[in-house]
Design a protein around this nucleic acid. Structure first.
Length: 229
DNA sequence: GCGACAG
DNA sequence: ATCTTGTCGC
């Protein structure tokens, strides 16, 4: 497991963090379709915290997109680099997530993040931020609609409805299991929304959440326990 | 001003 | 995110 330090010049205040987002957001690429669903590598990233001990652990888990078999995994430990502020989640997770991605023995391919991309107060959530910093195609998948609105998608698996900020479509509520609460998909970087939803539906073959986030979540929790005990 | 608010 | 036992169901 890699150990990371908080980068020099990391934002210390909410104002600084918002300024960083406003600068980096101009580099998001939204006109690429991204890799075809069911091909290549798909990587899940997630983070677990022990705020008491000021410890954060990130995990990156690479799956084969076609079979969902585990191909590689890596973890990283660090200190908490920012408090949780809605809209500024990326500053809390990114240094450790980057270290976990660096520790992988193979290319990550498409990266699936916990949280949002375009669906964000300044249209620059965690998935977009990670995409711009790495250049990789990224997707955000959240379990809650955050501040956005949506109409309930149809009941079958695969049904979806727009996720909106006012009139603007910022993502999609995607039903991955019949009669179960949808997940909230938004584009991060270098992937189209249609393609992002197709990927997530393929990854959520057996459960509501995509296999990428399930595996990354399990790994970072396990690694946190081991790093903490 | 007050409440809501990804993880 | 995290605090947390048993329990209902496939």
């Amino acid at each position: 497991m890699t150990t990371v330090r908080i980068p020099a010049g990391w934002p210390a205040t909410e104002e600084e963090a918002r300024a960083v987002q406003d600068e980096l957001r101009t580099r998001v690429v939204l006109d690429e379709p991204g890799p075809p669903p069911g091909t290549g590598h798909v990587t899940g990233v997630d983070v677990a915290y022990d705020d008491e001990r000021d410890v954060v652990v990130a995990a990156a888990v690479v799956l084969d997109a076609a079979s969902l078999d585990l191909l590689a995994e890596a973890t990283a430990v660090g200190r908490v680099s920012f408090p949780y502020v809605p809209g500024l989640l990326a500053f809390r997770e990114i240094p450790t997530v980057l270290a976990a991605l660096d520790g992988l023995p193979c290319p990550p391919g498409l990266v699936v993040c916990d949280g949002y991309g375009l669906a964000h107060p300044r249209r620059f959530g965690l998935a977009s931020h990670l995409g711009v910093l790495t250049g990789l195609p990224t997707i955000g998948v959240a379990k809650n609609p955050f501040t956005f609105t949506y109409e309930e998608p149809g009941t079958p698996r695969g049904a979806s409805a727009p996720l909106r900020a006012g009139d603007e479509e910022v993502g999609r509520a995607l039903r991955t299991r019949a009669d179960v609460k949808p997940v909230f998909v938004s584009v991060g970087h270098r992937v189209s929304l249609d393609n992002a939803c197709a990927h997530i539906l393929a990854l959520a073959r057996d459960y509501r959440l995509p296999e990428t986030t399930r595996r990354a979540d399990a790994l970072c929790r396990r690694a946190l326990r081991e790093a903490t005990s």
